[in-house]
């Protein structure tokens, strides 16, 4: 079971739900923090570091002895990551997407590839949780390859909870691809609802079953509930707006530690998700999964 926790808008409680849910399960659970620009999940967990691994992408390497400065590579590159001014090209590895095009178009076969670091994956053990989190190097704009690398850590024999980046742009798509279920965390406010609609569009476009958690229930209005009802979107959990929860969060504490009764509620949430994901398993999606692996 691979569950992604996502939200159109930042700050709705995505990380809170991911970490508390992972902590509430009675079994060994894998938590993947794919919010690689601002991974915050580890701030809420105490544990021991379990190693770190560099992540790289292939970037061009030019052999000066073979290059004649023709700039075929520069003319081809859509990302302006390589350019020649009549001499050996200047490389901008931070702009390179690793498509391999320059290598293929070089008439003198002067280009090979080499690995460039884009970030690391850190591992941490905390109770029943193994957390793997991607940390993008500062100044690197290329989140998707790192997200894909974090997802390669997925183990098949334990539940996997994946904390997705906020928004609806390409890093989110990379995080949600091939997951079994998406939990969208929102607030019952106009901003929350507006951004929830965007997230629903993305999830539907990707044909992944999903449900909603409404956080800070009691603020805002009924429009988020109305929207879910009208669109037939299951509301799987509601977390009330509670100053005590906000204060615990501000100190970096888990809700389930500050209020143990929530443990049960998160377990129930997971049960609902499992049932819904089960209902949605069709030949179509299982084929999609096996193709992707």
């Amino acid at each position: 079971m691979i569950l992604a926790v996502a939200s159109g808008k930042g700050g709705t409680g995505k990380t809170t739900v991911s970490v508390n849910l992972a902590r509430s399960l009675d079994v060994e659970t894998q938590l993947l923090d794919c919010d690689v620009e601002e991974p915050n999940g580890y701030l809420f967990l105490d544990g021991e570091a379990g190693g770190s691994q560099e992540v790289t992408i292939p970037v061009p390497l030019v052999d000066a002895a073979l290059c004649d400065g023709c700039n075929a590579c520069g003319k081809f590159c859509e990302y302006n990551a390589i350019v020649s001014f009549g001499k050996i090209p200047v490389l901008f590895p931070e702009m390179c997407h690793g498509c391999g095009g320059c290598m293929k178009v070089c008439p003198r076969r002067a280009i090979q590839e080499t690995d460039k670091r884009i970030g690391v994956i850190e591992t941490m053990r905390s109770g029943n949780i193994t957390l793997d989190y991607g940390l993008l190097d500062v100044g690197v704009a290329m989140a998707p390859p790192l997200i894909r690398a974090v997802k390669k850590r997925i183990r098949n024999n334990t539940p996997v909870i994946l904390d997705a980046p906020p928004g609806t742009s390409c890093p989110v798509i990379a995080a949600l691809r091939d997951v079994d279920f998406v939990l969208l965390v929102t607030e019952p406010t106009p901003f929350g609802l507006h951004d929830l609609r965007l997230a629903v569009d993305v999830t539907r476009e990707m044909a992944i079953p999903f449900g909603v958690v409404i956080n800070r229930l009691g603020i805002g209005d009924e429009r988020t509930h109305d929207f879910c009802r009208k669109e037939n979107i299951p509301i799987l959990m509601e977390i009330p707006d509670d100053r005590g929860i906000a204060e615990a969060y501000s100190r970096g504490e888990l809700i389930v530690d500050a209020y143990p009764e929530y443990r049960n509620l998160f377990q129930q949430l997971f049960g609902r998700i499992l049932r819904l994901a089960q209902q949605n398993v069709t030949d179509d999606t299982s084929e999609r999964r096996s193709n992707a692996r």
Binding site: F76, E78, Y79, C99, G100, G101, K104, C170, I173
Partner: peptide, 11 residues
Amino acid sequence: VACEGCGVCVR
């Protein structure tokens, strides 16, 4: 959604 617009297939 997956296409990054590199142009390799085009070429």
